[in-house]
Each structure stands twice: as C-alpha cells, then as structure tokens.
C-alpha cells in the first residue's frame, strides 16, 4: 500500500506491506539507516524517531499510521558536515562506544533539551530510560547531555 509521509520536512512516498512498521519504511524503503533496528518490541529505543513532534519507538508504529503525518529522524539533526550540538557533545564526552544506541540516544536527548534546556540529572535519566546502551554504563551519556545543555547556555 502507498504511504505518504513528511519526513524531515520533505514529502516522501513508499509502497509498503500493510503490516510494516514505520521503522522498516524508514530503513528499507526510504534508505534512512540512522534509525536503528534492534529489538522490534519497544524495549531498546534504538529506533527512536519523532512522530508529530513526539519521540516514539518507530518499530511500534504501523507505517500506515504515519500517513499524512510529520516524521523527524536523526538524519534531520546534522547540517551537512556540521554535527548537531548534541551529536558533537556525545563525541566530545566519549559517550559513543559501539555506537549502535547512539542515534536513538541522540534523538531522545535532543527532544529533552528542546523541551527543557537545563534538565536535572534525574530528568536526563528519565528521558533516556527507554534507550538501552550495552557499552557505556550511561554515565558518559548523561555527561554528554549535560555538556550539550551547558554549551547551549542552559546549564550554569
């Protein structure tokens, strides 16, 4: 079936199996491979993307449910070769090891900072509670979010 969705500001169309998830449409049909597929059951957050401005697990959204909606993915963040400040902070804070969880983490962290420019550590941990990382032990990820916040002038 045909699904038309605005992805990162551009109308895109894909011919998908009706049972396909938004994740599979993004990756397999639209070639947007930044959104990762790991568990397909909502547990890991590596498929995090914005749907109408809210971060969701794209593996749990039927592609057909995104018809006519606004989708934003991790690819929207960098400006050409210039990384988004949250991406840069992840690099600088050493918050990336294997990198598999990173796009989902960056999406969740960016969403948090767009809503709350100076979050407490507790708010950071809460915002990232749906994103699993098997490498870092999370501390450096929290540090990265704080670093991004302080560079943006949020943190004191």
């Amino acid at each position: 079936m045909l699904v038309r969705t605005r992805v990162n500001g551009e109308w895109r169309e894909a011919d998908v199996w009706p049972g396909a998830s938004l994740l599979s449409m993004l990756r397999d049909d639209l070639g947007l491979l930044g959104t990762k597929n790991a568990c397909e059951q909502g547990e890991c957050g590596s498929c995090s993307a914005w749907l109408d401005g809210e971060v969701v697990c794209s593996c749990l959204v039927l592609a057909a449910q995104a018809e006519g909606r606004e989708v934003r993915t991790v690819e929207d963040l960098a400006d050409g070769d210039r990384l988004h400040p949250v991406q840069q902070a992840f690099l600088d804070a050493g918050a990336v090891q294997c990198g598999f969880c990173t796009p989902g983490m960056v999406v969740a962290a960016t969403d948090l900072l767009e809503r709350d420019p100076d979050p407490s550590d507790e708010a950071v941990r809460e915002a990232l509670s749906g994103n699993l990382c098997r490498c870092t032990g999370y501390q450096k990820i929290v540090d990265a979010v704080r670093l991004a916040a302080s560079r943006a002038g949020g943190g004191a």
């Binding site: 009706p18 998830s21 397909e40 909502g42 749990l60 039927l62």
Partner: peptide
Amino acid sequence: AGGTDVMVAVNFDRLRPEAFLD
C-alpha cells in the same frame, strides 16, 4: 491504537490479521 501491544505481536509473526482498523 498506539500499537505498543499490537506491533510487538506483528513484528514477531504472532499476529497476521486480514486487516487492521487504525
């Protein structure tokens, strides 16, 4: 509706309805 129960079943081949009602 939100798909958070339904899609887990679909993704794991436990649910193959003839149609979905969104």
